[in-house]
Amino acid sequence: MVTVATWNINSVRLRMPIVERFLQEQSPDILCLQEIKCQEQQFPYEAFRALGYEHFAVHGQKGYHGVATVGKVPFKEFSRHDWQDNGEARHVGVELTDPGMQGMVVENVYVPAGGDEPDRTINPKFGQKLDFLDRMTRWAETIDRPTLIVGDFNIAPLASDVWDHKALLKVVSHTPLEVETLQRFMDAHGWADIGREHIKAPERYYSWWSYRAKDWKANDRGRRLDHMWASPELAKEATGHSVHEYARDWDKPSDHVPLVTEFTL
Protein backbone atom coordinates (compact mmCIF):
# COMPACT_ATOMS: atom_id res chain seq x y z
CA MET A 1 0.00 0.00 0.00
CA VAL A 2 1.11 3.56 -0.68
CA THR A 3 -0.62 6.68 0.63
CA VAL A 4 -0.34 10.04 -1.11
CA ALA A 5 -1.39 13.37 0.40
CA THR A 6 -1.76 16.78 -1.21
CA TRP A 7 -2.01 20.14 0.57
CA ASN A 8 -1.76 23.77 -0.49
CA ILE A 9 0.11 24.86 2.60
CA ASN A 10 0.33 28.63 1.90
CA SER A 11 3.94 28.99 3.14
CA VAL A 12 5.67 25.83 4.32
CA ARG A 13 8.05 27.61 6.68
CA LEU A 14 5.29 29.58 8.40
CA ARG A 15 3.08 26.51 8.75
CA MET A 16 5.68 23.83 9.47
CA PRO A 17 4.14 23.17 12.93
CA ILE A 18 0.84 22.04 11.39
CA VAL A 19 2.66 20.09 8.67
CA GLU A 20 4.50 18.22 11.42
CA ARG A 21 1.22 17.58 13.24
CA PHE A 22 -0.39 16.22 10.09
CA LEU A 23 2.56 13.94 9.30
CA GLN A 24 2.69 12.63 12.85
CA GLU A 25 -1.04 11.86 12.83
CA GLN A 26 -1.48 10.54 9.26
CA SER A 27 2.01 9.51 8.15
CA PRO A 28 1.42 9.43 4.37
CA ASP A 29 4.17 7.89 2.27
CA ILE A 30 4.19 10.88 -0.08
CA LEU A 31 3.19 14.48 0.66
CA CYS A 32 2.73 16.96 -2.18
CA LEU A 33 2.72 20.61 -1.11
CA GLN A 34 1.74 23.65 -3.14
CA GLU A 35 2.37 27.35 -2.55
CA ILE A 36 5.47 26.69 -0.45
CA LYS A 37 6.55 30.32 -0.97
CA CYS A 38 10.28 29.76 -0.63
CA GLN A 39 13.37 29.07 -2.66
CA GLU A 40 14.75 25.54 -2.76
CA GLN A 41 17.64 26.29 -0.41
CA GLN A 42 15.18 27.72 2.15
CA PHE A 43 12.98 24.62 2.28
CA PRO A 44 12.85 23.05 5.82
CA TYR A 45 14.52 19.76 4.85
CA GLU A 46 15.75 18.93 8.36
CA ALA A 47 12.28 19.25 9.89
CA PHE A 48 11.01 16.68 7.38
CA ARG A 49 13.99 14.39 7.90
CA ALA A 50 13.28 14.39 11.64
CA LEU A 51 9.87 12.91 10.80
CA GLY A 52 11.28 10.20 8.55
CA TYR A 53 10.87 11.97 5.20
CA GLU A 54 14.21 11.56 3.45
CA HIS A 55 13.29 12.11 -0.20
CA PHE A 56 12.65 15.48 -1.82
CA ALA A 57 11.74 17.14 -5.09
CA VAL A 58 11.47 20.88 -4.51
CA HIS A 59 10.70 23.48 -7.17
CA GLY A 60 10.66 26.81 -5.41
CA GLN A 61 10.89 30.51 -6.02
CA LYS A 62 11.25 33.57 -3.83
CA GLY A 63 8.10 34.55 -1.97
CA TYR A 64 5.49 33.11 -4.31
CA HIS A 65 4.09 29.86 -5.66
CA GLY A 66 6.41 26.85 -5.45
CA VAL A 67 5.73 23.13 -5.10
CA ALA A 68 7.45 20.36 -3.17
CA THR A 69 7.06 16.60 -2.94
CA VAL A 70 8.50 14.78 0.07
CA GLY A 71 8.50 11.07 0.77
CA LYS A 72 9.24 8.28 3.21
CA VAL A 73 9.52 6.02 0.17
CA PRO A 74 12.20 6.63 -2.46
CA PHE A 75 11.54 8.47 -5.69
CA LYS A 76 13.46 10.37 -8.33
CA GLU A 77 12.52 13.70 -9.82
CA PHE A 78 10.82 13.01 -13.12
CA SER A 79 9.77 16.34 -14.65
CA ARG A 80 9.35 20.09 -14.27
CA HIS A 81 6.89 21.61 -16.72
CA ASP A 82 6.49 25.34 -17.23
CA TRP A 83 2.79 25.24 -18.06
CA GLN A 84 2.58 28.90 -17.05
CA ASP A 85 5.17 29.64 -19.78
CA ASN A 86 6.83 32.33 -17.67
CA GLY A 87 9.23 30.47 -15.40
CA GLU A 88 6.99 30.31 -12.33
CA ALA A 89 7.51 27.29 -10.07
CA ARG A 90 4.16 25.53 -10.37
CA HIS A 91 4.97 21.89 -11.12
CA VAL A 92 7.22 19.00 -10.17
CA GLY A 93 6.81 15.33 -11.02
CA VAL A 94 8.42 12.30 -9.36
CA GLU A 95 8.67 8.61 -10.23
CA LEU A 96 8.50 6.13 -7.35
CA THR A 97 11.47 3.77 -7.32
CA ASP A 98 10.65 1.42 -4.43
CA PRO A 99 10.05 -2.20 -5.56
CA GLY A 100 6.33 -2.74 -5.94
CA MET A 101 5.72 0.94 -6.59
CA GLN A 102 8.21 1.25 -9.40
CA GLY A 103 6.98 3.18 -12.40
CA MET A 104 4.17 5.10 -10.67
CA VAL A 105 4.45 8.82 -11.36
CA VAL A 106 3.12 11.51 -9.03
CA GLU A 107 2.67 14.94 -10.59
CA ASN A 108 2.32 17.90 -8.22
CA VAL A 109 0.76 21.05 -9.71
CA TYR A 110 -0.38 24.50 -8.62
CA VAL A 111 -2.72 25.98 -11.23
CA PRO A 112 -2.94 29.81 -11.26
CA ALA A 113 -5.91 31.31 -9.44
CA GLY A 114 -6.85 33.46 -12.42
CA GLY A 115 -7.57 36.84 -10.88
CA ASP A 116 -11.01 38.28 -10.15
CA GLU A 117 -12.70 38.85 -13.53
CA PRO A 118 -13.58 35.82 -15.69
CA ASP A 119 -12.75 37.64 -18.91
CA ARG A 120 -9.34 37.35 -20.52
CA THR A 121 -9.81 40.58 -22.50
CA ILE A 122 -9.76 42.66 -19.30
CA ASN A 123 -7.96 40.24 -16.97
CA PRO A 124 -4.77 38.72 -18.37
CA LYS A 125 -4.47 36.40 -15.35
CA PHE A 126 -7.66 34.62 -16.36
CA GLY A 127 -6.27 34.03 -19.85
CA GLN A 128 -3.02 32.72 -18.36
CA LYS A 129 -5.00 30.23 -16.28
CA LEU A 130 -6.88 28.93 -19.33
CA ASP A 131 -3.65 28.70 -21.33
CA PHE A 132 -1.97 26.83 -18.45
CA LEU A 133 -4.76 24.26 -18.55
CA ASP A 134 -4.48 23.97 -22.34
CA ARG A 135 -0.75 23.19 -22.02
CA MET A 136 -1.54 20.60 -19.34
CA THR A 137 -4.11 19.07 -21.69
CA ARG A 138 -1.60 18.68 -24.53
CA TRP A 139 0.81 17.07 -22.07
CA ALA A 140 -1.88 14.68 -20.79
CA GLU A 141 -2.36 13.31 -24.31
CA THR A 142 1.23 11.98 -24.20
CA ILE A 143 1.15 10.11 -20.85
CA ASP A 144 2.17 6.46 -21.20
CA ARG A 145 2.50 5.21 -17.59
CA PRO A 146 0.43 5.01 -14.39
CA THR A 147 0.16 8.62 -13.23
CA LEU A 148 -1.41 10.46 -10.33
CA ILE A 149 -1.78 14.22 -10.70
CA VAL A 150 -2.57 16.12 -7.52
CA GLY A 151 -2.65 19.66 -6.30
CA ASP A 152 -4.49 22.93 -6.21
CA PHE A 153 -6.32 23.11 -9.55
CA ASN A 154 -8.12 26.33 -8.48
CA ILE A 155 -11.32 25.05 -10.09
CA ALA A 156 -14.36 23.55 -8.38
CA PRO A 157 -16.07 21.78 -11.28
CA LEU A 158 -19.28 20.35 -9.81
CA ALA A 159 -22.32 22.07 -8.31
CA SER A 160 -21.73 20.17 -5.06
CA ASP A 161 -18.08 21.34 -5.03
CA VAL A 162 -19.17 24.85 -3.98
CA TRP A 163 -21.38 26.32 -1.29
CA ASP A 164 -23.74 27.97 -3.80
CA HIS A 165 -23.65 26.90 -7.43
CA LYS A 166 -25.80 29.73 -8.81
CA ALA A 167 -24.07 32.43 -6.79
CA LEU A 168 -20.63 31.36 -8.04
CA LEU A 169 -21.31 30.82 -11.74
CA LYS A 170 -19.68 34.17 -12.53
CA VAL A 171 -16.94 33.83 -9.92
CA VAL A 172 -13.47 32.69 -11.00
CA SER A 173 -12.95 29.03 -10.03
CA HIS A 174 -16.50 27.92 -10.88
CA THR A 175 -17.31 29.58 -14.22
CA PRO A 176 -18.61 27.38 -17.04
CA LEU A 177 -15.56 28.24 -19.18
CA GLU A 178 -13.14 27.03 -16.51
CA VAL A 179 -15.17 23.88 -15.92
CA GLU A 180 -15.24 23.14 -19.67
CA THR A 181 -11.49 23.73 -19.93
CA LEU A 182 -10.82 21.39 -17.00
CA GLN A 183 -13.10 18.77 -18.57
CA ARG A 184 -10.97 18.84 -21.73
CA PHE A 185 -7.95 18.12 -19.55
CA MET A 186 -9.80 15.20 -17.95
CA ASP A 187 -10.84 13.79 -21.32
CA ALA A 188 -7.32 14.06 -22.77
CA HIS A 189 -6.12 11.17 -20.61
CA GLY A 190 -9.33 9.69 -19.26
CA TRP A 191 -8.43 10.78 -15.74
CA ALA A 192 -10.47 9.43 -12.84
CA ASP A 193 -11.40 12.02 -10.23
CA ILE A 194 -10.44 9.99 -7.16
CA GLY A 195 -12.19 12.33 -4.74
CA ARG A 196 -15.51 11.94 -6.50
CA GLU A 197 -14.99 8.22 -6.99
CA HIS A 198 -15.08 7.89 -3.20
CA ILE A 199 -17.27 10.85 -2.18
CA LYS A 200 -20.07 10.66 -4.68
CA ALA A 201 -21.79 13.78 -5.99
CA PRO A 202 -24.03 15.43 -4.94
CA GLU A 203 -22.47 14.97 -1.49
CA ARG A 204 -20.84 18.17 -0.23
CA TYR A 205 -17.07 18.13 -0.73
CA TYR A 206 -14.89 21.20 -0.04
CA SER A 207 -11.15 21.66 0.47
CA TRP A 208 -10.84 25.47 0.79
CA TRP A 209 -12.47 28.16 2.93
CA SER A 210 -11.57 31.84 2.68
CA TYR A 211 -9.72 33.54 5.51
CA ARG A 212 -12.30 36.34 5.24
CA ALA A 213 -14.92 34.35 7.14
CA LYS A 214 -14.59 34.89 10.90
CA ASP A 215 -16.08 31.45 11.54
CA TRP A 216 -15.30 29.26 8.54
CA LYS A 217 -17.18 26.28 9.98
CA ALA A 218 -20.44 28.09 10.72
CA ASN A 219 -20.20 30.03 7.47
CA ASP A 220 -19.11 26.94 5.48
CA ARG A 221 -18.71 28.79 2.21
CA GLY A 222 -16.25 26.27 0.88
CA ARG A 223 -15.05 25.16 -2.54
CA ARG A 224 -13.28 22.01 -3.75
CA LEU A 225 -10.20 23.53 -5.35
CA ASP A 226 -7.82 20.65 -4.57
CA HIS A 227 -7.86 17.40 -6.53
CA MET A 228 -6.30 13.96 -6.90
CA TRP A 229 -6.79 12.46 -10.37
CA ALA A 230 -5.42 9.11 -11.54
CA SER A 231 -4.78 7.34 -14.82
CA PRO A 232 -7.55 4.79 -15.49
CA GLU A 233 -5.41 1.75 -14.60
CA LEU A 234 -4.05 3.39 -11.43
CA ALA A 235 -7.51 4.55 -10.34
CA LYS A 236 -8.56 0.91 -10.00
CA GLU A 237 -5.93 0.52 -7.25
CA ALA A 238 -7.29 3.39 -5.12
CA THR A 239 -8.80 1.87 -1.99
CA GLY A 240 -9.56 4.95 0.10
CA HIS A 241 -9.79 8.73 0.02
CA SER A 242 -10.19 11.22 2.86
CA VAL A 243 -10.58 14.98 3.34
CA HIS A 244 -9.02 16.31 6.55
CA GLU A 245 -11.27 19.29 7.23
CA TYR A 246 -10.27 19.50 10.90
CA ALA A 247 -6.89 20.90 9.83
CA ARG A 248 -8.67 24.16 8.91
CA ASP A 249 -9.19 24.63 12.67
CA TRP A 250 -5.53 24.25 13.65
CA ASP A 251 -3.38 27.13 14.84
CA LYS A 252 -2.34 29.42 11.97
CA PRO A 253 -4.02 27.17 9.38
CA SER A 254 -3.76 27.17 5.64
CA ASP A 255 -6.99 28.13 3.89
CA HIS A 256 -6.79 24.67 2.25
CA VAL A 257 -6.97 21.26 3.93
CA PRO A 258 -5.10 18.04 3.09
CA LEU A 259 -6.49 15.24 0.93
CA VAL A 260 -5.20 11.66 1.21
CA THR A 261 -5.61 8.71 -1.16
CA GLU A 262 -4.56 5.12 -0.45
CA PHE A 263 -3.46 2.77 -3.21
CA THR A 264 -2.85 -0.98 -3.15
CA LEU A 265 -0.34 -1.57 -5.92
Score class of each variant (00 low, 15 high):
Ala159Ile: 01
Pro146Val: 07
Gln24Glu: 09
Met1His: 10
Pro17Gly: 00
Val257Ala: 05
His241Arg: 14
Ala156Tyr: 03
Arg135Pro: 11
Trp83Gln: 00
Gln34Glu: 07
Arg15His: 08
Asp251Pro: 00
Leu169Ser: 05
Pro99Ser: 11
His91Val: 03
Arg138Ser: 09
Ile9Val: 10
Asp82Ser: 07
Lys252Gly: 06
Lys252Ile: 14
Trp250His: 05
Trp163Met: 06
Asp187Thr: 09
Ala218Met: 12
Gln34Met: 10
Asp251Ser: 11
Leu31Ala: 12
Arg21Phe: 01
Leu148Ser: 08
Asp193Tyr: 05
Arg135His: 14
Glu203Thr: 13
Asn154Pro: 01
Ile199Asp: 02
Arg135Asp: 14
Pro74Ser: 02
Leu169Tyr: 00
Ser242Gly: 08
Pro44Leu: 07
Gln39Arg: 10
Val67Met: 04
Asp119His: 03
Asn8Ser: 08
Glu203His: 09
Met16Ala: 09
Glu95Ala: 05
Leu182Phe: 10
Asn123Gln: 12
Ile36His: 01
Ile199His: 15
His91Gly: 04
Asn154Ile: 02
Asn154Cys: 02
Tyr53Phe: 06
Ala201Val: 10
Arg80Trp: 13
Ile194Asn: 02
Arg49Leu: 13
Leu130His: 08
Glu95Cys: 04
His81Trp: 07
Glu46Arg: 13
Trp191Glu: 05
Thr181Asp: 01
Asp220His: 15
Arg248Asn: 10
Ile30Ser: 06
Glu203Val: 05
Tyr206Ser: 07
Tyr53Gln: 05
Gly240Ala: 11
Val73Cys: 09
Tyr246Glu: 11
Ser79Thr: 01
Gly127Trp: 10
Phe75Asp: 01
Val12Ser: 08
Arg120Asn: 02
Lys214Thr: 15
Cys32Asp: 07
Pro232Val: 09
Gln26Ala: 11
Thr239Gln: 15
Ala218His: 12
Ile18Leu: 10
Arg184His: 06
His244Phe: 15
Pro44Thr: 08
Lys37Ala: 09
Asp144Phe: 04
Thr147Cys: 09
Met1Ala: 13
Val150Asn: 03
Gly100Pro: 07
Glu25Thr: 07
Ala188Pro: 13
Trp209Tyr: 11
Asn10Trp: 09
His59Ala: 06
Arg120Pro: 10
Ala113Trp: 12
Glu25Trp: 02
Glu95Gln: 15
Thr142Glu: 14
Pro118Cys: 09
Trp209Cys: 02
Ile122Asp: 02
Glu107Lys: 07
His227Pro: 06
Val179Glu: 07
Leu51Ile: 05
Val150Trp: 03
Asp220Ala: 15
Arg80Ile: 13
Val111Tyr: 00
Arg15Lys: 12
Pro99Asp: 12
